[in-house]
Design a protein around this nucleic acid. Sequence first.
DNA 1: CTGAAAGCGCTTACAG
DNA 2: CTGAAAGCGCTTACAG
Lengths: 330, 330
Amino acid sequence: MPITIKDVAKKANVSPSTVSRALNDHPRISTETKKQVQELAKSMGYVPSQAARNLVTQRSATIGVAVADYLDPFYVSLLASIEDVALANNYDLFVSSFYRDRRREEKLFDSFYEKRLAGIIVAGSLIDEGYLSQENRSVPVVLINCFSYPFSVSADKLAGAKMAMEYLVGLGHHRIAYVSQGKPLNTELLRLQGYRSVLRKHDIPIDDSLIVPGDGGVIGGIKAVSRLLDLPEKPSAIFCFNDMTAIGVMNALQKRGCQVPRDCSVVGFDDLEIATYYHPSLTTIRQPIYRLGYRATEMLLDLIRSDGEVGSEILEPELIVRDSTARAQD
Amino acid sequence: MPITIKDVAKKANVSPSTVSRALNDHPRISTETKKQVQELAKSMGYVPSQAARNLVTQRSATIGVAVADYLDPFYVSLLASIEDVALANNYDLFVSSFYRDRRREEKLFDSFYEKRLAGIIVAGSLIDEGYLSQENRSVPVVLINCFSYPFSVSADKLAGAKMAMEYLVGLGHHRIAYVSQGKPLNTELLRLQGYRSVLRKHDIPIDDSLIVPGDGGVIGGIKAVSRLLDLPEKPSAIFCFNDMTAIGVMNALQKRGCQVPRDCSVVGFDDLEIATYYHPSLTTIRQPIYRLGYRATEMLLDLIRSDGEVGSEILEPELIVRDSTARAQD
DNA sequence: CTGAAAGCGCTTACAG
DNA sequence: CTGAAAGCGCTTACAG
């Protein structure tokens, strides 16, 4: 059994109250007893029980973070800045993934709520504005990349998709495919909207057979390619939902003897580390990952501290040109 | 403020004890009141406080998982099986990374202990057997890939390294480099031991300039290559600490105009998803990732339930031949 | 089958 | 500056 505050009190010949105050640097306590108690507690290996403390103070210093997919480095990279801000403010993190499964996301939220966490950040939510109906549960929730939710930080997916498409069109590509995530979420619909609007703007006809579903991961990209290469008229460029999809796409293209970028250009979305190191390196739309996590956490801390009104924030993405794109051939 | 058991009791005109029993499916309670209370609680949106429950029952249904690096998919893949076993046994997971930093690992352990978690799994520990000295803190700890710790599950790194080296030597390679993780951990030393023993066995002289440090990630692999390509006599094959390192290595080789596998063979360790999808696909040593996490969690549950003696377990790795390796040229 | 009471390990007004 | 007491939200022997 762990050592309790009473054990320390007994050994120090003081009351539990005094031990508590000593350990919490309370002002009204003599420097002497404070130091004595602190040393004794340490030597006994005393570690306070967070559960007991949270219960009595009615607050918690833990933030819950739910990410869509551990295996997508985008979400994992987000954790770095979330952790930086959280630790700097003496919060720690409870991280979990819901594997792009709505049920699991709901369960995760329940389990966070049972723990009475101070607040929750969800990245890649499938519930989206659904969190609004949870407002009777009094816990602040901030979403990343769901701009329709009032407390959220997002990269501008529409602008990002437009950049990618303008760039490809500018290279002379007319048959441009889009490999989606396969789920009709906001973040998906905005990319698709960008895809369509740029084509329309340049009077390029929209061919729905060039819009194929992926799954947000490598496998989805691979499957998408086999559909695209079976088309009577193949695409000369492929815009992908994200970098993981793009890696699957590039891999499948190369396996089928289709050189990137000579025979087909590929553009991703996210700018993961692997985008730089894949061969060929990947042209992509960089999401401001660090800023996303940073601002989301600051926003959550604001909500925790003051219930203050905060709006949804939108950050600008950036086109990063690398070796997976080239001029259209003819 | 969240709804408490008292709120439900008042509204249901029963005592808090009865509410508690109804919600916990206690046997000695009438089916009728049980159902009534359960429905009322649900309609009121009552969610029990885990902190309060843990405090009074003196146990927790949460397992802490500390992994060396979120950005290395090896660790993240481990989470899948850990989660499977944990959820099947009604435990949930508290996951965190210590970013290959010993201080952070220590802090993480403290923070886990404050939460009085049921047990802890550490993958890629830098503390290793150091956890033994923490035994006064009464929490079971299972390590993954640290076979010198009594409660651990590991892949056989020595055997894995030997497989990789025997395979390369069998292809006719004599100048084989090793890119390490850069830290003198067990898991590293065993690979090095395997590297050396195979060379010795085949009477190939050991050239220490071919042993260069990486950092367990892509960047380390890239840096290692610039050192290797500056050698007067270049290696014809490179054995890498892990797949992430190998990706850095392959990338740097290709950037410097060195074709893989024609000019240089590369072997990784882990068999991450990306090993299949990188171009060229990576020959590697497969760690039984799912089994590692699975057995570690079962072992931890045994410890939680019975304090029973458990030994350290070693699982066999497997050589996966792909396209990053070829016969030596001359 | 149900309720009143004690207690888990803390913190914090309230006295002194 | 220190201690006794109450209480956070639960569970669970102990009575009835």
